[in-house]
Write a protein that binds this DNA or RNA. Structure first.
Lengths: 209, 209
DNA sequence: CGACACATGTAACACGTTACATGATTTG
DNA sequence: CAAATCATGTAACGTGTTACATGTGTCG
């Protein structure tokens, strides 16, 4: 629903056409992800179907206020919010995101299943090794953290949207890293409880930071 | 892809039928989310279509090894991994989750857009108030944190999957809370820079914890 | 007998993604 | 003139969600 609600929210400030909406949604959410233009049009037509937006066909030549975007001039279909649409946006902004049933997180699924299958001879001759999975993920996550930390260092201090978005991504990545360490620790703890000195290959964990 | 990959991963330990897979996937990922049985069957048929699993029709009566589940006895279709399927699982476990293009997060979209629309008279007479949105979300998030913290306190210390899952959810929620505070601070900072003493209604932020 | 867990599936739909097709206008 | 940007859309497909239909076996 992100795209859908995002588009609706943008339209509260006035009608726009598809291409503009794409650009604006990307920029106003921090320019961290790209939106396929095609999806804007599909989503808009679904919104129209649901009575949340209307399409005011204003052909480029002729009338129109003409503070129109520079490079325009042909089809130019404007979309506006209906009252129902305005109501939906209001509700969206007013209602917090709930976590009654938490989202499925693919990484959590991977690690929990790996934990319960750990050591089993199952993947064509190989074994599922929880430690390896965690280590590989930690490497990738650490790299991502660096990437976004760098982006944040370079960010324009007045672009609130971008700062918010970068903070969020970094917080998520950082949380993931902590979580990975936590999993490792739990695991080691359990292992040492059960088989007190299997003093094998596992090196001591360096906590990050 | 969570369900799809989860099912594939479970099948590495041997053939199972649909209903079993549903139960097992729920339990082995910490029993924090529910999976609609219907989806298991649709997903399995898609996996079959893609040549990743095969369906060995083993009617309940007659042969079969008969360590079969107690309450069974009728249709009982077993699904097994093909070689292609086994390969996919291997790749899934081996490859870390990438964050090259970060996922769209609806809450981030909501707050970034709200930040850029803040104060505008736009929602049928009302205004979009970033502070209100943040406060409402913080309340909901705080409640969620309590819920899952309680669950964790009661959790069985030997159920690694459940502990992993609870840790992950809590880490996410905690991160969200910190992020909300961070947004608030950034905002207050920016506001005081621009209009030095608008000493209006906003009370001082209590940092959480 | 009735409720519940076991067991299987289909149909319809939601949102999101990619690839494709088309064309005007601006700029180097 | 060529390439980039502006601009609009469709077709086909992917996963996930809900609601519905159907039936057996067990237990109180």
């Amino acid at each position: 629903m992100s795209v859908r609600n995002g588009l609706l929210a943008l339209l509260t400030t006035g009608p726009r056409h598809g291409y503009e909406l794409k650009k604006e949604l990307e920029e106003r959410t921090g320019s961290l992800w790209e939106l396929n233009v095609g999806q804007v049009y599909t989503t808009l037509s679904r919104l129209e179907r649901d009575g949340l937006v209307t399409e005011d066909d204003a052909a480029g030549h002729g009338g129109v206020v003409d503070d129109a975007p520079k490079g325009a001039g042909q089809d130019q279909r404007q979309y506006s919010l209906t009252d129902a649409g305005r109501a939906e946006v209001g509700e969206w902004f007013a209602a917090p995101r709930l976590r009654s049933a938490p989202d499925r997180d693919e990484l959590v699924i991977k690690l929990t299943i790996a934990a319960s299958l750990d050591g089993q001879r199952s993947i064509d001759g190989g074994r599922i090794d929880l430690d390896e999975i965690i280590d590989a993920q930690r490497a990738a996550t650490t790299e991502a953290l660096q990437t976004y930390t760098r982006l944040k260092a370079r960010a324009d201090g007045d672009d609130l949207a971008r700062l918010f978005a970068l903070d969020a991504v970094i917080a998520q990545i950082d949380g993931e890293l902590r979580w990975l360490d936590q999993c490792q620790q739990r695991r080691d703890a359990l292992r040492s409880t059960r088989r007190p000195s299997t003093g094998s290959s596992r090196p001591a964990r360096r906590p990050h930071r």
